[in-house]
């Protein structure tokens, strides 16, 4: 039994004393943590607390001023993201990683059909059979609860909730192990949010995904995540299991965050 567990015993992604400063302004300081396969980590905090900067550092889109991020690749070798070539990083980004933007228009090609949006990653890794690409795409549309009859419609004809679900399908089609999400429920109305969260929770469990989700909505963190990191002024001020942090916040700022949620 010890052998198969070993795979999950090693962290997937490790941030070590990560920092980013713009001149004298430190957007992010001394962030360290380890993320394990299948684990969902929420980064919460108010606007300007450095959440999005941290997400960009972790996903290699921004070069860190200090510290490093290492990732265990599919071949089992853990590598420093800063040492990856551009080709390797982009390949990682469209195979083993997903990135769900707050605004689906940023993550989707709005002018091409939903099927092609989902199929793009497959074609990028060399799939060359139209029938198989289309089957896989319709299968994924089903999984994210989009009517398969709309496979040939462009996402600009979709509602906000559908676009977000399509973006998720587009990211998950190559079976990534790690997905970054930047406010995935932002701008959606409450019932659509609830449906999306429910879908995400099921997919994450089913696919054993590791997720780093940035949100200012503590309800999203509570529903989805196993662990929470609270950020303020570019620093992580509190971290722990989700229910522990949200039910028994230690730091005054976290207490303020938690108490500012309206009671249902």
């Amino acid at each position: 039994m010890a052998e198969p567990m070993l795979e999950n015993d090693q962290p997937l992604l490790v941030a070590d004393a990560l920092g980013k400063s713009y001149g004298r302004i430190a957007a992010c300081r001394d962030v360290s943590f380890a993320l394990y396969p299948g684990e969902v980590l929420a980064i919460v905090g108010e606007s300007g607390s450095g959440k999005s900067t941290l997400l960009q550092l972790l996903s290699g889109q921004l070069a860190a001023s200090s510290g490093c991020v290492s990732y265990r690749m599919r071949d089992g070798v853990t590598r420093d993201l800063a040492t990856l070539g551009e080709a390797e990083r982009r390949f990682l980004f469209r195979t083993d990683w997903g990135y769900v933007h707050q605004d689906p228009a940023q993550g989707l090609r709005m002018a091409v059909s939903a099927g092609a949006n989902v199929g793009e990653r497959l074609m990028a890794v060399g799939w060359n059979h139209y029938g198989r690409i289309r089957d896989t795409a319709s299968n994924w549309l089903e999984r994210v609860e989009i009517d398969v009859a709309r496979i040939d419609d462009a996402p600009r004809t979709y509602s906000g909730g559908m676009r977000q679900r399509l973006q998720i399908a587009r990211n998950l089609v190559t079976e990534p192990r790690l997905v970054f999400m930047d406010e995935p429920t932002g701008g959606l109305d409450v019932s659509v949010q609830a449906r999306l969260l429910d879908l995400l929770r099921n997919l994450v469990a089913e696919l054993h995904l590791a997720v780093i989700i940035v949100t200012h909505d503590l309800a999203v963190a509570r529903l989805l995540s196993h662990r929470v990191m609270v950020m303020k002024g570019g620093r992580v001020i509190e971290t722990g299991l989700t229910d522990q942090v949200l039910d028994d916040p230690r730091e005054p700022y976290t207490q303020l965050l938690v108490s500012s949620i309206l009671p249902p």
Partner: peptide
């Protein structure tokens, strides 16, 4: 991959 998106 994008070129095939056009053909798709």
């Amino acid at each position: 991959g994008l070129m095939h998106v056009k053909l798709y």
